[in-house]
C-alpha cells in the first residue's frame, strides 16, 4: 500500500489550514496510508488537531526546541530521516512549504513536483506553469519518491474524524547552528485571514496612498471580508507584503473576490483564478480585469465605495 507523509505547517501552537488541504490532495491517491509529521518545540496540541483530520492514519511528532521557528535548514534533515520508506512526501505550497520541501527533495536526491493542483492517478499529476497560463500533466517514473508541494487553493480542507494515533518519531538530531531565527513581524490578526477567507476585497495602485486605502479596509470590515492588494499597492507602501495576491503573492480561492482599482495583470489574475465570483470596479472599461470578472462596474472607486457602503446601510 502506498504511504504518504505530510509535513504539517503550524504557528503559535495551531495547525495551519493548508495542512488539511494537503490531506485532501493525498486522499486522491487511492488507498494510500496518510501520516502527518509535526515538528515543533511542543507538538502535542498541534498533533491532536492533525489526528482529527479525516483520512489521517497516524500522526508522528518530534519535539525539539530547534523546531520552535520554521527554519528549513533545521527541519529538512528531520523530515528526510522520517520520510525514509514513504512513497510520497507532501507539504503545502505556502512560503513554509516552498522554503522547506525543495531542501528535503534535494537531500532525498529527487526533483520536487511544485504546486500540485490535481491528482490524475497515483503517478500522474497536474501543475501550472507560466503563472498559470499553461497546465501540464506530469507523469512521475515508478519507484521515484514523489516530493510535492500542494497548491492549497485547488483543495478543500478535509472534515474531522475520531482521533488517529499519535506517536513520537525518532529524532534525527544534529540541527545545524548556521541558521538562526531573529524575529517575525505580522500584521493585525483581527481581520479574517486572506488565505482562508470566504470574501476578499482587494485594492490596487488606484488607491493612491496608505490613507486612501483605509476605505478598502472599511468596506471589507462592513462585509466581514479579508483585505488583499495588487503588487503595485504593496510596492507603493499602501499595505504590507502579506496582503499581495498573485503569482508571487498569495493564491486564493474565496467565494467572493472584489478587485477595486486593479488593472488585472496576468500575474495578479493567477492568484484569483479559483475564486467563486469575481467583481471588478475600475474606471477604465478596457481594463483586462473585466475579461475575467463575473460582475463588472465601470466607475470611479472614490464614488462607488461610499455608494456601496450606504446601500449596505
Amino acid at each position: 500500500m502506498a504511504s504518504i507523509l505530510i509535513v504539517a505547517e503550524h504557528a503559535n501552537g495551531a495547525l495551519n489550514p493548508a495542512t488539511a488541504k494537503c490531506v485532501d490532495c493525498a486522499r486522491g491517491i487511492d488507498g494510500a496510508d496518510i501520516h502527518v509529521l509535526v515538528l515543533a518545540d511542543s507538538p502535542d496540541a498541534i498533533a491532536a488537531e492533525a489526528a482529527a483530520l479525516e483520512g489521517v492514519g497516524k500522526v508522528l511528532t518530534v519535539a525539539d526546541a530547534a523546531f520552535a521557528a520554521p527554519l528549513a535548514a533545521a527541519l529538512a534533515p528531520q523530515v528526510v530521516a522520517t520520510a525514509s520508506g514513504y512513497d510520497y512526501v507532501f507539504g503545502p505550497s505556502t512560503t513554509f512549504g516552498k522554503d522547506l520541501m525543495p531542501r528535503v527533495a534535494a537531500l532525498l536526491g529527487v526533483n520536487q513536483l511544485s504546486d500540485v493542483m490535481e491528482v490524475v492517478d497515483a503517478r500522474t499529476f497536474k501543475r501550472p506553469i507560466y503563472a498559470g497560463n499553461a497546465i501540464t500533466t506530469v507523469r512521475v517514473r515508478d519507484g521515484y519518491t514523489v516530493v510535492a508541494t500542494v497548491r492549497a487553493a485547488s483543495y478543500k480542507a478535509v472534515g474531522s474524524q475520531d482521533a488517529a494515533p499519535i506517536e513520537s518519531a525518532e529524532a534525527a538530531g544534529g540541527t545545524p547552528a548556521h541558521t538562526r531565527f531573529v524575529s517575525v513581524q505580522t500584521g493585525d490578526s483581527d481581520r479574517p485571514d486572506l488565505q482562508t477567507a470566504a470574501r476578499v476585497i482587494s485594492g490596487g495602485r488606484a488607491l493612491g496612498s496608505a490613507d486612501n486605502f483605509e476605505i478598502i479596509y472599511d468596506l471589507a470590515d462592513s462585509v466581514g471580508a479579508a483585505v488583499g492588494a495588487s503588487r503595485a499597492a504593496v510596492d507603493a507602501g499602501y499595505v504590507p507584503n502579506e496582503l499581495q495576491v498573485g503569482q508571487t503573492g498569495k493564491i486564493i480561492a474565496p467565494e467572493l473576490y472584489v478587485a477595486i482599482g486593479i488593472s488585472g495583470a496576468i500575474q495578479h489574475l493567477t492568484g484569483i483564478k479559483d475564486a467563486g465570483t469575481i467583481v471588478a470596479i475600475n474606471k477604465d472599461e478596457d481594463a483586462p480585469i473585466f475579461e475575467v470578472a463575473d460582475i463588472g462596474l465601470v466607475g470611479d472607486l472614490f464614488k462607488v465605495i461610499p455608494e456601496i457602503k450606504s446601500a449596505l446601510g
Binding site: 513536483l113 497560463n133 501540464t136 500533466t137 506530469v138 517514473r141 483564478k273 469575481i278 475575467v292 463588472g296
Partner: peptide, 26 residues
C-alpha cells in the same frame, strides 16, 4: 523522472455581466 505528457491552456472563466451602477451591483 518527470515526463510531461500534455500542456493545456487553463480553463477559461466565462464572460460575466457589466452592471450599470452601484445599486445594480449590490
Amino acid at each position: 523522472a518527470f515526463e510531461v505528457s500534455e500542456y493545456a491552456p487553463p480553463p477559461q472563466r466565462s464572460k460575466g455581466v457589466m452592471v450599470e451602477d452601484t445599486a445594480a451591483l449590490v
